[in-house]
């Protein structure tokens, strides 16, 4: 087993992730769980698990990121998920470019420069239905399991237009379509399209630098990937663990500073 050189934790709004890296910055260990409302307890559990695996953590640099980063009292540092995602993805894909991270509460477009530096970034409007949470809610309402969301959307041979970006309005549009007997698939495809078009607007606002990369939980959704490629004409690159990039970047920052 390789020796643990740094830990990073990403306390997000939907999930909580911890990542361990070795001296060379390679990802050697991780845990991922649904976010616990008692984030502090969850962090303690994660740390205990790390301790069991690697022994005492006293000398191991530990950096926190994500919405709950300030709750991680043991962390030496806390850094926003914007910087961490940039760092993590850069380290894995080894090139500058434009990163789209669709998280539970926020979507972000980050232009990554040399060395994983953030050159510019944009985040979704508060009222725009541009987040993972919105997809999750809709999946629940349409009784489609979250994992099958992308596949179901892509199986549609046509799509319904969902024009509203206000969450409440979009939900009422969907309800109305369902009430009119429209099948689930075209609704889902339209919904993905509407989300992607919001993302594309953010990409344009910062200016696309190739390649286009995707991280965050939604990266596993093939419809998002496919439509993003369609709308931008760019191939979308994925890291091996898209969901862990924040925590991974945090660990890398710890490694560098520690």
């Amino acid at each position: 087993m390789k020796a643990l050189a740094a830990l990073g934790i990403d306390v997000g709004s939907s999930t909580c992730k911890i990542v361990g890296v070795d001296e060379s910055g390679e990802l050697i260990w991780h845990l991922l769980e649904q976010a616990d409302p008692r984030a502090e307890d969850q962090v303690q559990r994660f740390l205990k698990a790390a301790e069991q695996k690697f022994g005492p953590l006293k000398a191991v640099p530990f950096v926190a990121t994500g919405y709950g980063r300030k709750l991680v009292k043991d962390a030496a540092k806390n850094i926003t998920e914007i910087s961490c995602h940039a760092k993590g993805v850069y380290h894995e894909l080894q090139k500058p470019g434009t990163l789209v991270d669709i998280g539970g509460q926020d979507s972000k477009v980050i232009v990554i420069g040399a060395g994983g530096r953030v050159v510019d970034f944009a985040m979704n409007d508060k009222c725009a239905a541009g987040t993972g949470r919105f997809l999750e809610n809709t999946a629940g309402r349409l009784h489609v399991p979250l994992e099958a969301l992308g596949k179901t959307a892509l199986s549609a041979d046509r799509e319904e237009t969902i024009s509203s970006t206000c969450t409440v309005f979009a939900e009422s549009e969907i309800i109305s379509l369902v009430a009119h007997g429209v099948a689930v698939e075209p609704i889902l495809k339209g919904l993905h399209r509407s989300l992607v078009s919001r993302i594309v607007a953010m990409i344009r606002s910062v200016g696309l630098v190739s390649p286009l990369m995707l991280s965050g939980g939604v990266a596993r959704n093939e419809a998002m990937r496919k439509l993003l490629e369609e709308e931008t004409g760019e191939k979308v690159h994925l890291p091996q663990y898209p969901q862990l990039m924040g925590a991974y970047g945090a660990a890398l920052i710890g490694l560098k500073n520690g």
Partner: peptide, 9 residues
């Protein structure tokens, strides 16, 4: 978070 990311940037 937006402000902090900007400052980091």
């Amino acid at each position: 978070t937006r402000i902090e990311a900007f400052i980091e940037m």
